[in-house]
Amino acid sequence: MAEKSKEQYYLPPPKLGKWEGFSKFVWDSDSSQFLGRTGASWAKIFIFYIIFYAALSGFFAAMLAVFYQTLNTKSPKWRLDESIIGTNPGLGFRPMPPESNVESTLIWYKGNDENNHKYWTEEIDRFLEEYKKPGLAPNVGQNKVICDYNNPPADGKVCDVPIKDWRPCTTEDGYNYKKAAPCIFLKLNKIFDWMPEFYNDSSSLPNNMPEDLKNHIENNKKPAELNTVWVSCEGENPADIEHVGPIQYIPRRGFPGYYYPFRNYEGYLSPILAVFFERPKTGVLINIECKAWAKNIHHDRQERRGSVHFELMID
Rank of each mutant, 00 (worst) to 15 (best):
S5H: 11
K6G: 05
Q8E: 13
Y9S: 13
K15D: 14
L16F: 08
G17N: 13
G17E: 13
E20S: 14
F22K: 09
V26I: 15
D28P: 06
D28T: 06
D28L: 03
S32I: 06
Q33V: 05
G36C: 09
R37L: 15
R37Y: 15
W42L: 08
I45D: 13
F48D: 11
I50Q: 11
F52Q: 07
F52Y: 12
F52D: 09
Y53R: 04
S57N: 14
A61E: 12
M63G: 11
V66W: 07
F67L: 10
T70W: 07
T70S: 14
S75T: 09
E82F: 06
S83C: 11
I85M: 08
G86P: 08
T87P: 05
N88E: 09
G90T: 11
R94M: 11
P97V: 07
P98R: 06
I107H: 04
G111Y: 04
N112G: 10
E114I: 06
N116Q: 10
K118T: 10
W120S: 02
W120C: 03
E129M: 00
E130N: 06
Y131V: 00
P134D: 00
P134H: 00
G135V: 00
L136Y: 00
P138W: 00
Q142M: 08
K144H: 00
I146S: 09
I146F: 05
C147H: 05
C147W: 01
Y149P: 02
N150T: 12
N150W: 10
N150L: 12
N151K: 15
V161G: 00
V161K: 00
I163K: 00
D165G: 02
D165M: 05
T170W: 04
E172D: 14
G174P: 01
G174I: 00
Y175M: 09
K178G: 15
A180G: 12
P182I: 05
P182F: 02
C183G: 04
I184T: 10
L186Y: 05
K190G: 06
I191P: 00
F192P: 01
D193Q: 11
M195D: 08
F198R: 01
N200W: 01
S202M: 11
M209H: 09
N215D: 13
N219E: 14
K222Q: 13
K222P: 02
V229F: 05
W230G: 01
C233P: 03
E234H: 07
E234I: 05
E236D: 12
V244N: 01
G245V: 04
I250E: 05
I250V: 15
R252N: 12
R252G: 12
P256A: 08
G257N: 10
Y268C: 04
L273Y: 01
F276L: 09
F276Y: 15
F277V: 07
F277A: 02
E278P: 01
T282S: 11
G283D: 08
L285Q: 05
N287W: 02
I288L: 10
E289A: 09
C290L: 12
K291N: 07
W293N: 04
K295N: 12
K295T: 09
I297N: 01
H299P: 13
R305W: 03
S307H: 03
F310P: 04
F310T: 07
E311W: 02
E311L: 08
I314T: 06
D315P: 10
D315M: 07
